[in-house]
């Protein structure tokens, strides 16, 4: 999904000129989810005892909704009706899409997922915060690092220690206040 959209930077917003390839692909994905819903829905086992409507009917209805609505959206996008991109206080409507930063953030979240078990939650979270803040342009690096470590320790203390959420404490293993 993401690769095909990345080939068309700046597509899909009302402000940006050019072909709405990304938006078209997204609408087609909605249609294909509906199609998959029908195909996979046909494979749902129905117990013979079911006298009322079985487990298939509602999935079929939802799939039909997705196909119909998705097709309508494909049609609309082809006719030139584009979606209005989300607005927000921190969103610059005139900015070009910064795919590099989006990719970096996604990469750090993925890295975090692989680090939780070997390094423990606090270290993995500190790395995520540090990496994300750096990707978004925070400088200098040492302030990011200090903030990351303090935040990770505070969260481990509040959620792991006080609230009893079992976050793996990593190197804090054995220290009670961190839920270790």
């Amino acid at each position: 999904m993401s690769t095909s959209v990345q080939n068309a930077p700046g597509s899909g917003t009302s402000a940006a000129p050019g072909k709405p390839i990304g938006e078209l692909v997204f609408a087609l994905i909605i249609v294909s989810i509906g199609v998959v819903g029908f195909v996979a829905g046909a494979g749902i086992q129905t117990p013979p005892s079911a006298s009322d409507i079985g487990p298939r009917a509602f999935p079929f209805a939802v799939s039909a909704l997705l196909v119909v609505v998705g097709a309508g959206l494909v049609f609309q996008v082809l006719r030139g009706h584009r979606g209005a991109a989300d607005e927000g206080e921190d969103v610059d409507p005139d900015a070009k899409t910064d795919w590099l930063t989006v990719g970096k953030l996604a990469g750090f979240v993925l890295l975090h997922a692989f680090l939780i078990v070997p390094l423990g939650w606090p270290v993995a979270a500190a790395i995520l915060f540090f990496g994300a803040a750096w990707s978004l342009g925070a400088r200098p690096w040492w302030r990011n690092l200090v903030t990351a470590i303090v935040l990770a320790l505070v969260l481990q203390f509040v959620f792991g220690g006080l609230l009893g959420v079992s976050l793996p404490p990593g190197f804090l293993e054995g220290i009670g206040v961190f839920g270790g």
């Binding site: 989300d86 927000g88 206080e89 921190d90 969103v91 610059d92 409507p93 900015a95 899409t97 910064d98 795919w99 930063t101 989006v102 953030l105 996604a106 979240v109 994300a132 990707s135 978004l136 342009g137």
Partner: peptide, 13 residues
């Protein structure tokens, strides 16, 4: 996550 990624793509500097 959706919001963070979206804002990051167009962050107001």
């Amino acid at each position: 996550v959706g919001e963070a990624l979206y804002v990051a793509s167009r962050l107001r500097h």
